[in-house]
Each structure stands twice: as C-alpha cells, then as structure tokens.
Write a protein that binds this DNA or RNA. Structure first.
Length: 820
DNA sequence: GGGCGGTACTG
DNA sequence: CAGTACC
DNA sequence: GCCC
C-alpha cells in the first residue's frame, strides 16, 4: 500500500489515489488487492500503450552506449568486425585440461559454426594480474546443465497453492441465541486450549473483560469505562478515542498476533473478545496471512463455514479504523477473504523478496502449506534462544531428525558430492511450466524433511539444547553460526503470527527512506525488524517481549508498542506526504534520495508529474510503470534464454547463467541478472563479448535501453545495465556482468546474493581478516584509517563457491537458502 | 562511542 | 568527488 | 537503528 496519502498509510487503508502508478504498485505488490483480472489486463495494456506512445513506438538507445561504443570501436575493431563471420570453437568439448565431472555436459549450442578465434593471446594477457591459481584445481562447472540438484526451484519447498475455499461459503453455520453462545469447534479446539499461551490469554481476558455477571450477549454499554480494562490501557492516555465503536460485537481473536493489546482495545471500544468462536461471535480478526483452511484449523473448526451465518472475518485494520472514526464501520474494505474472486495469479511466493528492498511495502505474502500461525511448541525457550543461537528464531531447520526415511548423510552427500558450484538452475521440467509444486512422488529428501518439520510431523528436538543434532550442522567455524551467512534462510514460505507487525515495519521502512537526515543504518534497522518479526514464530505481544530478540532494541520496541496499542506515536507523525513522496520517487531508476528530495522541492508530487512535466527524466526512467513491476519467473527464464542464445551464437563456449533472485528460486524477480564468463583452457577469452552481445540483442529488439555501460566493454570484467524485453512484452531491467574465469566462485556468490547474505558474508570475512568481493576472497588487504583499501591483498579463493566457503569455515548452502 | 560490505558507473 | 547502483 |  504505497498510495501517497499523507499521514494515513500506516493506520488507515490506503486512500485511493488518482495515480496510476500507485495503482500499479498495488496490483503488483499487495496480495490483498483484489480486482477483476480483466480490469487489470486492460490497465496493463493501457500502460504498455502509453509507454510505446511516449517512446515514439520503440525504445531508443542512449547516447551513453553509443559514445562508449564509438570511442571503442576504432580502438578495438576486431571483435565487432568479426561478427559477420560466425565464430566457432574447437570441436572437442574436452579441450580443457581439467576433466569435467562425468554426467555434466557442456552447454549445447550451435554446431554449425566455422572456425574462428574470438579472443587472442594478447587479450588473455590483459587479464588482471593476480597470481593465476593452478589450473589443476577443480574447475567450476559449466552452467546451464540440466541436472536436477537441490539448488533448483523444484527442490525448494514451494508454497502450496492458495486455499481454494470458496469465500462465499464462509460462515453458513448456525447462529444461535447470542445470549447463550455455544462453543464451536472440534477436538482440535481442546488441543488448542491446552496450549500455554492460550491459557495465559484466557486469564488475561478474564482480567480485562467486564464482569460476567452482566449480560455479555450484546456488550451494550459495557466495556467502556470498566475499571480494569481502562487500567490496562491507562498508559495510552487516550482511552476516549473511539468511543463505543464496537458495542454489540463479539470478536474472536484467533490466538496469534498481538492478542493482548488487541483484546484491550476491543474491550475498550465496547466489544467482547473471545479466543475461540462460538455461536454468538460476530467477527473474527485475521490478518496473519493464513489461508481459510489454516485459519479454520487455528480456530479449532473443520471449516470456516462452521462459523455462524454472517460472521465477518476481518483484518485488524478494521478495528483501528473503527476506533479512529469512533463508529462501527462496514467491513467491506477490511475483509480478510474478500468476496470478489481471488485473482488467479496471486503470487505463490516462496521468495517474493524484492530485489529492491525498499519496495517491500505490502502484505503480499500469501499462504503457506502449514499453519505457522498457531502457537509454537516451545515459545518461551525459543524466544530466549533468540539472542544466543542462530536456530532459535526460525523453526525452519529442515532436518532435525535423522530418523526420517532419508538420512542427513544423504543430503549432505548430495551437496558435497561433485560440485556445489554447478549452477544447475533448473528452469523448468522439460515441457512444463516453471514454478510448480513438486508432486509427492518427486519430492526429494530435502522437501520431505522441510515439510515434515514445518507441519510438525518431524520433531524439532534439540532446539533448546542447542548444538549437537547434526542435521543442520553448524559451520566448520562456530563463529559463523552467528552470522546470517552462516544460517539457513529459506525465505518465508509460511506466514508467521507477526505478519501484521512486519507489514507495519515494511511501511515504516518505506517512509523513512524518504525522510531526510535519517541515518541509513537506522533506516535499515526498520527493514531488518520487519524481517525479524516475519521470521519469529512466537506471537509478539509487546515491545518489551520483542526487545529480547536480537535486532530489536529500545526504539523498535517502542514502535512495536505503538502499533500493538493502535497508538498514534512517532511512526504516525513521521509518516508525511513528503517522506512518502520522496520514497516513491526513489523507485525511479537513477533517482536517489537527494534527487528525489530535489524533485519534491521543485513541486513534483506524483510519478505522473515526473513523466509529464520536465524534470529531466530520461526515456529509460520513464519506463517506471514496467520496471516497477515484478517479473514472473517464467518470463525471467525466457529473457535469459534469449540472451543466452545470443551469447552462445557469438561464442558457444561461453558460460552464461542467470543469477540474482532467480537463482535463489524466487517466483518473481525485480530484474534479470546474467553472468558470463568463459573457460580459458583453449587460451581464448570472452573479451569483447559484452559489446557484441549487447549489440546483437539491440538488433533483435531484446535490448532497448542502456542505463549504464562498462567503462571498457572489452575488459574481461565488465558490467552492463539496461532495459530489455521479450519483444512485445513489458520492459524489464537487465544486468549483464562478465568476469574473468578465475573469479567464477566469487562472482557466483556476489551475484546470487541476496544483499543481506552478501553483507553478512563480507562482514564475516572481514572479521576473519579476509576481504570478500565479487572477485573472490582476499587476504592481506590493507586499509587506511577510513577503510579505503591501500593494498590489494592476495587472492585466497575464488574458483568455486565452495572453495570460498571452506576457507571461511562456513557451510556451503544452496542459493535458495541464502535469503536472510 | 565506534562499526556497520565492497565495488562500479555517471556526471 | 558525491550520488546512485548491484548483489 | 542495533550491537559490541
């Protein structure tokens, strides 16, 4: 929800904006946004036509590239001029001095090519002057192999398909005389009741609820002014806000999320609170992101249709809004399961992580295959662990229990056997669509273990006791256990009980990005808090409680209290039009904080302003509409294939791979990242490829814009950033990076990310006396007082990912586990 | 109170 | 150089 | 912002 409404975004539903970009943003990022798919299609078609119109029918090419290109062409005519004659390679695939592991094939590509030389020995000599590692070391493995590995989306625990329960079927249960509510529920309910948290909450409710002697049925005239309830809320000093807005309601708070403060607010507003549904319940609060089926389970029901007729399942926002408007509002805009048809393409994300973290604003995460909303089996110990152990916060240690059919030895042997550096990005099963749930029969051992742990069928024994249990063995160096890069992070296929809070912090983070004079580390703190909350399985019910978690300090704890109590605190007052606008402008490529602020000062208020008035945006920047939207995995793959094929047509021995969030298994990505290198065993290199590739793709209409070009296209290490598309499709951000062959490992790590993982790994490396960059792991780097490097240092490891992890004493992990 | 990743391209 | 970008 |  990133509408630019001042001061309302965090507490209120987003005001509708007459801003198509806000609209698009909502479509793209907000899973709660439901709209007729046809409207969306029509809208997106319109956006495309607008773009085409503004671009005069096609993308133009930036001067930057032509400038660089022309300055280069004379200098280095050879590669370009050769392009007319198809290159070729020696026919033998094994001309490399290093034997390839059997079963791994070179990328197959065109065969009908005439002999030609791409690089020259002279080129090779231009390679960076690090000591060349002995070529007898295991080589990195060729990309684009089609071998199924754990490092593949198919092996990632993908979210199960969204719950298909027909929303209209919700709540057809009986509604008895509200004066004598009868509990609803199955045997599940008894189990729920036994949980410690549940009992605590019951007790708490007894404390704050009006005396039972009074008729509870309607709660009319009660609640407000009740001494005890008020007492609890006294700290807010705002007990009058909201009046008796909820009089007459009987609201079920499923035992997750910020129950206590929520209960207090409801009572304060004259409503009743129950922890499990009965025949008199009028509303159920649910915004943890659970599916209907999961919610039903948490409520101890077989199905939500067991709820009394007319029961509204609403988001907490409805209550806060009732409070602020001091009246009972219609629930239409706050339904957890809106009645309109669900959009069929609601992302089924395993990783909807944004490549542009600042865009993470919306509650877009959807259902998971199991109920993470329930109380965790060991909430208190687990939380206490949070500060001391890396495994405490998440419950996603896949393989705690070796007594599963598949031993962990098998797992690690899969990882360690052969090569962990084979990219093995599995794009799709042959002929099938890309991102599908593995069927039962095809689940591999890891899937089974992951699913088992998640649905509780596999014990998570050993969480408290800490170490031993070698499923998710620590790192060779135990210190690494305490870094994000030494932990397993698989993203959040499940929604935890703190999703609502996490979303608030996402929003706050976005706002702060537009706030002037705020420390970048402070801003990141909010982003991190969102992630922490999202991964915390224990419902956070107070700032003080959250304070125990590593990463949540005094300030964040205060924000949490404000959110939980529905208070208009700092978060509210800092949510200004200016901050939001600037934050939104920053989403335009090339517009950073300073320029965004300047644009605001100059009077721009919407993205539309930037495009229609003269603020000096380039044509590429005006593609905002397309670029801001996420790229479905399958489209990433198609773009990749176009690029790869173009590259292989130039030199079939290139290694071309798709990196970034795609490699981490994301269901959609913010851009397409391509990494290119070439085995130098035949004494040829990929120098000049980038220039020819970009040129070729421009010819074919795949590349349409340059955003930034390498200072030297003919360096072995070069980066091109720009915009392209599948002809006819949306414009997409594309990055293409080339690296010297010997940097493969370092480049893989860098380009795979994610950002947090990289920072963590680099920090860890630094603490160990190394320095890690996209070229590899270095030792002996000397920095001056300001941290500037004064000595290159010596390359320690870089040929493969595993080599680098080994030196650092960190367990290698497949990309899909690198999502802290 | 210091530290917080390391680098590349643009103008 | 500062600003913005990449993961 | 948080952590050491």
């Amino acid at each position: 929800m990133s509408a630019l409404a001042p001061g309302t975004g965090i507490f209120a539903p987003p005001a509708w904006q007459d801003d198509v970009f806000a609209h698009l943003d909502r479509i793209e990022t907000d899973s709660a946004f439901n709209e007729d798919p046809e409207d969306i299609e029509a809208y997106e078609a319109w956006v495309r036509s607008e773009v085409v119109r503004k671009l005069g029918g096609h993308g133009d090419t930036h001067n930057a590239s032509s400038r660089v290109a022309s300055s280069r062409v004379n200098h280095d005519v050879a590669p370009a001029s050769r392009s007319s004659s198809p290159p070729s390679r020696l026919s033998s695939p094994s001309n490399s001095r290093i034997a390839r592991p059997s079963g791994i094939s070179l990328p197959h590509h065109t065969q009908l090519q005439t002999r030609h030389i791409i690089g020259t020995p002279a080129r090779i000599s231009t390679a960076p002057t690090i000591a060349t590692p002995t070529l007898t070391a295991p080589l990195p493995h060729p990309p684009s192999t089609r071998i199924r590995l754990l490092d593949s989306p198919m092996s990632i625990a993908t979210p199960q398909s969204p719950d298909r329960t027909d929303p209209s079927a919700i709540a057809r249960g009986r509604r008895d005389d509200p004066a004598t509510p009868v509990p609803l529920g199955t045997a599940e309910l008894d189990k729920l009741k036994k949980r410690k948290g549940f009992q605590e909450l019951t007790k708490h409710l007894a404390d704050i609820m009006p005396p039972p002697a009074l008729p509870q049925s309607a709660g009319r005239g009660l609640g407000r002014g009740r001494g005890r309830g008020r007492g609890r809320l006294g700290m807010t000093g705002r007990a009058k806000i909201g009046g008796t807005a909820l009089a007459g309601t009987r609201i079920c708070l499923a035992p997750s999320g910020p129950c206590k403060p929520r209960a207090a607010i409801i009572v304060q507003l004259g409503g009743e609170v129950v922890l499990h549904p009965d025949t008199a319940v009028t509303h159920v609060i649910e915004d943890s992101g659970a599916s209907a089926a999961m919610l039903a389970r948490r409520l101890g029901l077989q199905s939500l249709s067991d709820l009394p007729v007319g029961t509204q399942i609403v988001k907490w926002e409805w209550v806060t809004q009732c409070k602020f408007e001091a009246k009972l509002l219609p629930t239409d805009n706050y339904l957890t399961f809106p009645r309109t048809t669900q959009r069929s393409h609601t992302p089924s994300d395993s990783e909807t992580e944004s490549d542009r973290p600042r865009r993470m604003t919306a509650a877009r995460r959807r259902t998971a295959g199991f109920d993470a909303g329930g109380l965790p089996p060991r909430s208190v110990p687990a939380l206490q662990m949070a500060r001391s152990g890396p495994h405490a916060i998440t419950t996603r240690n896949a393989s705690r229990n070796p007594s599963r059919p598949v031993s962990t030895d098998n797992l690690s042997s899969i990882h360690r056997s052969s090569d962990t550096d084979r990219i093995a990005t599995r794009h799709e099963p042959s002929g099938g669509p890309g991102w599908i749930e593995p069927t039962g029969g095809e689940q591999d051992a890891l899937d089974i273990l992951i699913v088992g742990v998640k649905n509780g069928s596999v014990s998570t024994e050993g969480v408290e006791s800490g170490s031993e249990a070698e499923d998710e063995p620590g790192n060779p160096s135990r210190k690494a256990d305490f870094y994000k890069c030494g932990q397993k992070h698989e993203g959040e296929p499940s929604r935890g009980p703190n999703e609502w809070l996490a979303v608030q912090f996402d929003k706050l983070h976005h706002v702060y990005e537009g706030q002037q004079g705020k420390n970048e580390f402070a801003i990141r703190g909010y982003q991190r808090a969102a992630g922490i909350l999202r991964r915390t399985d224990i419902p956070i019910i107070s700032g003080a409680q959250a304070r125990k978690i590593k990463g949540i300090g005094e300030s964040l704890a205060q924000r949490i209290d404000e959110f939980l109590e529905g208070r208009q605190g700092r978060a509210y007052y800092e949510d200004t039009l200016e901050a939001r606008t600037i934050a939104t402008f920053k989403d335009v490529y090339g517009v950073g904080k300073n320029f965004a602020a300047e644009l605001y000062r100059k009077g721009a208020r919407t993205i539309e302003d930037l495009k229609t008035k003269e603020y000096g945006l380039t044509s590429g920047q005006r593609l905002y509409d397309d670029l801001i939207s996420r790229i479905p995995r399958d489209e990433c793959r198609q773009l990749f294939e176009l690029i790869r094929d173009a590259a292989l047509a130039i030199d079939g021995k290139l290694w071309v791979e798709i990196m970034g969030s795609y490699r981490r298994g994301a269901a959609n990505s913010g851009d397409v990242d391509i990494l290119i290198t070439r085995d130098t065993a035949d004494r040829l290199t990929h120098a000049g490829i980038l220039y020819r590739l970009v040129h070729s793709l421009r010819q074919s209409g795949v590349i349409t814009h340059d955003l930034s070009c390498p200072h030297d296209y003919f360096d072995l290490e070069a980066k091109w950033m720009g915009v392209g598309r599948i002809p006819g499709g949306k414009y997409r951000r594309i990055d293409i990076l080339t690296i010297p062959f010997e940097y493969w490992g370092g480049a893989l790590i860098y380009f795979t990310g994610n950002e947090v993982f990289n920072r963590s790994l680099r920090l860890y490396a630094r603490k160990q006396g190394y320095s890690l960059n996209q070229r590899g792991l270095f030792r002996g780097v000397i920095r001056d007082r300001k941290g500037n490097k004064t000595t290159e240092g010596e390359l320690v490891a870089s040929r493969t990912e595993e080599e680098i992890f080994d030196v650092l004493g960190i367990r290698w992990r497949p990309p899909h586990q690198r999502r802290p």
